[in-house]
């Protein structure tokens, strides 16, 4: 079981590479931002796997804080950067 958890954590970490590709390619800022959000979600999953692995309550707290606060950057982006730009309806 322990092997499986760590294997899954490594697999999720590799998934981040796929997200990276979106951050680098874009093409719009929203694509990059969503990819960064995907990073956050994957990190929560990795943290929960590590919490099971080490049987640690503290790591679940870290995952909780992560999940709660990942939204703040996205909202900052939507409110400050994206709303009102001339190309926010852009479908490129």
């Amino acid at each position: 079981m322990q092997h499986l958890y760590l294997l899954l954590a490594v697999f999720l970490l590799l998934n981040l590479g796929a997200g990276m590709w979106r951050v680098l390619r874009g093409p719009t800022a929203a694509d990059r931002m969503l990819a960064a959000q995907l990073f956050g979600t994957t990190a929560v999953a990795v943290l929960l796997l590590l919490a099971e692995l080490e049987n640690s309550v503290a790591l679940r707290d870290v995952a909780l804080v992560f999940a709660l606060l990942a939204a703040v950057t996205a909202i900052a982006f939507v409110r400050r950067a994206w709303a009102g730009t001339e190309d926010s309806n852009d479908t490129r």
Partner: peptide, 12 residues
Amino acid sequence: VLGAAGVLLQLT
């Protein structure tokens, strides 16, 4: 965490 709550309020 509290600071982030404040930031969220300001953003809305």
